[in-house]
Design a protein around this nucleic acid. Structure first.
Lengths: 232, 232
DNA sequence: GTCGGTAGTTGAACGCGTTCAAGAGGAGCG
DNA sequence: CGCTCCTCTTGAACGCGTTCAACTACCGAC
């Protein structure tokens, strides 16, 4: 408000237009209210009022109330990546890296558990741009998959050569499963989800190791063939 | 309307009260409109108008628009059970029984693919009574699990003794996974889902058989322990 | 028969997400 | 300085799901 207009761009961001401040203001206000009151209890009118703009103005920047969720989604992914860094620096074994990264993901999401629960409803709709499988979410999704590629690449694990290129995406899928469980997890502090991670990580560790075993080779092939078939 | 009141009950149904006809009328009208126009495009006003009742009357029988979905859910389960009967009568091998029952489930759902897609959004919300894991859905859920128990019991399959009691619920869970894939399946006629079933059934078949193998015994135990831990 | 109570029914009203025609503000140009 | 154009902003209005106070119809009791 009292700030001078700043000649065309504020920082090194080339996308910064005139209304960029308003965009961020609305986004931040929305995120705060979502966390404070929950998704359903936060009205677009309340967001606009708290941000000091008109209702329609929010719709100039965000196509719908649901689109505000996508901001949360993208933001969480960035925080997840940052929270995972120490783990990736510290750990060498596949299991420790995977477990650490999964726990880091839940760490980041934990403050928003209640709110995230209601928003996953929207994310589950296939036609929604919010679906983690949708084209609109490809940015955060690929960043997440890349994170799991780092988990694998930096580890000492030995994996079946055919399985290896598919594994990062499968790990991401497993992470989505963990998040799905977490969303439904009613246990205090979501302890069960932590147990799920601690239980499923050695399992994945073991299975990836076993994938090189001769007896299981046909099964491994069967799985990989199926995945290739179902690829879009 | 022109029907005589019928002394307290119509048939052998003890729950048949005065308004039971209205209830069924509203439900059937809603189901029809959902299929014709989709969930979001069907308004409560339209349902009421087509059924020839007031809007508020629909809310006397169904707590919300979402609750109408639960009717669909329950109805689908009954149809699934009926469609599975021939398979259970005919097939003896575990794989054929499981595959047949999974295909039967998708068969039943297929006419409602578009509508079901939007309604799964609501089902995914943990707080919703529509969630397949919720207490309110326990009826259809347990019926579905019982169906998969029949798949197993009537088959010639030999399964690890510790795994066996858990398997029906796991198979139901796998079915939920298939349905989740089906909901997102954009391929014409949902062919990919059919491929998923055909691919995943021999896999499950193989894995259950392998569960008795000595090398895999520790893994089997690990999985079962985890499941027991995560049970509510 | 009539009278009370419950089950069933009504539709106007509320708050919500969303739309849109109208306007405000500033940059570039003559 | 005035004009134009484009970005940004406004708030009333729309249709939706949902609520609720009021009303009606019918059954059992007396």
């Amino acid at each position: 408000m009292t700030e001078q207009p700043a000649p065309t761009t504020t920082a090194g961001d080339p996308a910064t237009a005139r209304g960029e401040q308003t965009r961020q203001l609305i986004r931040d206000t929305a995120m705060r209210l979502f966390r404070e009151r929950g998704y359903a209890q936060t009205t677009m009118r309340a967001i606009a009022q708290e941000a000091g703009v008109a209702v329609g103005n929010a719709y100039y920047y965000f196509g719908s109330k649901d689109h505000l969720i996508q901001e949360f989604y993208a933001q969480s992914q960035v925080e997840h990546r940052a929270a995972a860094q120490p783990v990736l620096d510290r750990e060498e074994s596949f299991g420790a890296r995977l477990g650490g990264v999964l726990h880091a993901g839940i760490d980041v999401l934990t403050p928003s558990h209640e709110f995230a629960a209601t928003f996953f409803k929207t994310a589950a709709e296939p036609t929604s741009p919010l679906s983690p499988f949708s084209a609109e979410s490809s940015g955060p999704r690929e960043a997440a998959i890349a994170l799991f590629a780092e988990v694998l690449d930096g580890s000492t694990a030995k994996v079946d050569a055919d399985l290896r290129p598919q594994l990062p995406e499968l790990l991401w899928l497993a992470y989505m499963g963990v998040v799905l469980y977490w969303v439904h997890d009613r246990s205090p502090g979501q302890t069960k989800t932590r147990q799920l991670i601690d239980g499923v990580v050695p399992l994945i560790d073991r299975l990836t190791a076993l994938s090189r075993l001769r007896v299981l080779r046909p099964v491994t092939r069967q799985v990989l063939d199926l995945i290739r078939t179902l690829r879009h």
